[in-house]
Amino acid sequence: MITFWRILKTGFRNLFRNAWLSAAATAIMIITLIIMTFFAFSAVFVQTKLAEVKSKVDLTLFLKDSSTEAQIKKLQGLILSDPGVKSVEYVSKADALKRFQSSDSNKEIVKSINDTDIGNPFPASFDIKVNDINKIAEVNDRIKKLDEDKIVDESSLDKKNQERGDVVGNIVKISNGVARVGAVLSVVFLVIALLIIFNTIRMAIFTRREEIEIMKLVGATKWFIRGPFIIEGSLYGVLGATLCLILLVPLTKAVGPFLVDKLGAGSVLVSFENHFLWLVLGVYGLGILIGSISSWLAIARHLKV
């Protein structure tokens, strides 16, 4: 116990007495943590955006005008029981017309329709959301088999609607690609940041290898030598995390409006604000983890008897 307190005390003392070295290591730590936070932010942003895009993609089945209410109810139940389907919304002819009329971009057309009075040309439909967008075509095929009364006139994925089908396919491809590239980039930057901080701490310890040698000769155990260095490394993490957050909070406040305006990042920013405590804990945890593990690894070489 007394040894533990001494190790802790020595760690703090070393931090202050090697002020320049500590400052350099802390600076690198800040940069590392900012890079990591930035990537975490980007990853969440990309994920949220992709989820938004994907949720907009759905399968629409247009129903024949001749289909009865019973037939529609029956098919809706069957579709809902398909394991790949998340939700089914029935849009009646009247609903479809209302939707069309309420859309701003259709105002001109709506006016002209009202003038000519051609009735309601819109078919009733099912708006289906699927669990996995990659399997939307399979779901489409299965539903066709379920449709015993043949009330489905056409599907948004049918050959006739080739263009829309392609768009869906492209969105799937692009979003998968973006997610993959993002993951690879994050890992690459994480590794680079870790190497930089590890090397900084390694060099800091290397300049003090003679001290380590002396401690060994005086009869210090491995833990008595290693302990203070690990404490010191963790303190770089604590200091780095504190300064990183001090820099990040006003920065986010400053560029936040721009992000919301240009990139539609509002939901991401809100989710960050809601999880601010987690962000703080994460940055501190990461800093302490990187600092202590780097110190541990860097000192191992010098501790061989």
Partner: peptide, 11 residues
């Protein structure tokens, strides 16, 4: 004092 600290001597 360091020589004593590493030996776990009381403060």
């Amino acid at each position: 004092a360091f020589a004593l600290e590493v030996s776990g001597v009381k403060t």
